[in-house]
Design a protein around this nucleic acid. Structure first.
Lengths: 190, 190
DNA sequence: GGCTTTCTTGAGTGATCACTCAAGTATATA
DNA sequence: TATATACTTGAGTGATCACTCAAGAAAGCC
């Protein structure tokens, strides 16, 4: 009996993610979204409920994709090589709308206001950090890095470096590839 | 003949800087500023011209203070010790309204829209990077770090690390002091 | 084809945005 | 004390914000 929506919800979320990622929360108006997703206000709210609800969906999508990509890479080439490849991947992926991490941008923008989206972004960053820690732990068990390192501490430093790298990659006066190479080569000294 | 303003312009700029620094550009409304600076709209616009003009003033103040503080420290304790102290200083200074770098936050928020404040922030980050490079160069001339390092490359990596550290310090699930210590100790291996 | 159910449409909501301006007030000089 | 010259005040500007809702259009089942 019902009528089907004329749009692909997943594709819409991916599109919205790219816009939010680039322009931020306050920097993206409903008009921007309506134009890009080709949805009138009524359809938008029927489909997603609110701007914040859609933003939360795109954050989840972003975080899930990031973890999945890294874990798949680790399964393929081993934990240490995956960690060494990651810095280069996050800055040269030409398909990416912007280099800086969407979770970090969201957190930085909304944390001061106590916005719930900042908490969600924070949660996803914790997941990502634990993902890094898991890979460091595996690398340690495989003997690829020394036994007297704390994987959690390595993960925190690594994540911090990646966040800085991705922000640096947004600048055109910085050679991000050199920084990425330096971050990767640091892992050889562990 | 004229009448003097009842406020201290410099103090107002410092106050505005702290608000912009914490809440960002879009996150700070004129109402916020009017309330905090105790200025009615008319006085605000007579004094500063526009929200963007005041923001630009606060950016300049922020950048100048940062460079001056680091350079003074370098004069006092030498370039390498200053570079090693900086990571701890930027995260524990209890007087600071927020840990993340205001230049980086501004750039991340406004770059996608091509806002001129993003360009100004970018320019100030370049100044800061050159300041780091100068200190690395001095340290190298003093024999404190090996002769086969490129001071500009070291400065870019160092700045990237600091940006990541300062963003990490905003999070409450991260031990920023450990990361700061690791960044500082990396300098010993140069 | 008729009917139900959902999706689509777009004008319209009140709130808030950055900003203006004319009237009122205080002060430094003469 | 008189006057000129600012500074202060706050109601008000049009624009844009996220969001609503009632009416119309289209698709699936009988």
């Amino acid at each position: 009996m019902p009528r089907k929506p004329s749009y692909d919800r997943d594709a819409l979320i991916a599109q919205a993610r790219d816009i939010f990622w680039r322009q931020g929360w306050a920097g993206t108006s409903l008009k921007d979204l309506e134009r890009a997703l080709n949805l009138k206000p009524g359809s938008f709210y029927a489909a997603f409920g609110s701007k914040d609800a859609l933003y939360a969906l795109t954050l989840e999508r972003y975080a899930q994709d990031g973890v999945a990509r890294l874990m798949a890479m680790a399964d393929e080439m081993g934990p240490l090589r995956a960690l060494k490849a990651q810095p280069h991947l996050v800055i040269d992926a030409g398909a990416v709308p912007t280099h800086a991490c969407m979770l970090a941008k969201t957190y930085a923008e909304l944390q001061a206001k106590g916005h719930e989206l900042a908490d969600k972004a924070s949660g996803h960053m914790v997941e990502m950090k634990e993902c890094f820690a898991t890979l460091f732990r595996r690398a340690q068990q495989a003997g690829e890095i020394g036994p007297d390192h704390d994987p959690d501490r390595l993960a925190a430093r690594y994540q911090s470096d990646i966040l800085g790298l991705r922000l640096s990659a947004e600048r055109n006066d910085v050679n991000a590839a050199e920084i990425a190479a330096d971050i990767a080569s640091d892992l050889d000294r562990l």
